[in-house]
């Protein structure tokens, strides 16, 4: 078996669950997560320089997941108007009356890019420059997406206690310092 294939298999044996979990977190949809992971694996291992080990590969696949997640198209027919920060919160009804389901519903209102940068900001704890570098986006684009995401979530779920200032100014700059725990 070739080196790249051995490394790919070893990576997926050890980290497949956590990588799929991360893909699911980034996009919020199980089928899209599988597609994201397939693309990320392909991009990572099709390069001339193959990751040298499992850790190297895991980091490279995660980077590719981030890049792909912010480029996902919004589902057809679900293009959303930019949230009006001065509008009163909309009447979103919890799916089953629980806080968890209403948060899930609020997250579902985000575009793929908004959701992905939100995950990188709050779940990975990254600052805007680190998100931009990891996702291959301009910092202004990250700020726009984060601002819209937080504004939209605040409108739907004020009790989440999010703040645009915190979203834009918080987080760590070194993406290498952030790791994903195996599921």
């Amino acid at each position: 078996m070739r080196t790249w294939a051995r490394t790919l298999d070893a990576t997926m044996r050890a980290d497949g669950a956590s990588l799929l979990a991360y893909a699911r977190e980034l996009c919020g949809d199980p089928e899209t997560a599988e597609r994201l992971l397939e693309d990320a694996l392909t991009r990572t291992f099709a390069r001339a320089r193959v990751p040298e080990g499992r850790d190297d590969a895991r980091g490279a696949v995660r980077d590719e997941l981030r890049r792909a997640a912010v480029q996902l198209d919004a589902p057809a027919g679900e293009a959303r108007e930019a949230a009006d920060p001065f509008a009163p919160p909309g009447p979103v009804l919890p799916l089953d009356g629980t806080d968890a389901s209403s948060t899930r519903a609020a997250l579902a209102a985000l575009t793929p890019r908004e959701r992905a940068v939100l995950v990188m900001r709050y779940s990975d704890g990254l600052a805007v420059p680190a998100i931009a570098a990891g996702a291959h986006l301009h910092e202004a684009a990250v700020r726009d997406a984060l601002t819209t995401a937080v504004t939209r979530l605040l409108a739907l779920e004020p009790r989440l206690g999010l703040r645009v200032e915190d979203a834009l100014e918080g987080g760590v700059l070194d993406s290498a310092a952030v790791t994903v725990e195996a599921g």
Binding site: A17, S18, A21, E25, L118, S123, R159
Partner: peptide, 28 residues
């Protein structure tokens, strides 16, 4: 609460992997 919600969805993804041999066919 937001982080917990995101983490729960991630766990679902991890469980999906662990509970399905089909991921190898579908992804790898």
């Amino acid at each position: 609460e937001l982080m917990e919600s995101l983490a729960r969805q991630a766990e679902t993804g991890g469980a999906l992997y662990d509970g399905r041999g089909g991921v190898d066919d579908a992804v790898v």
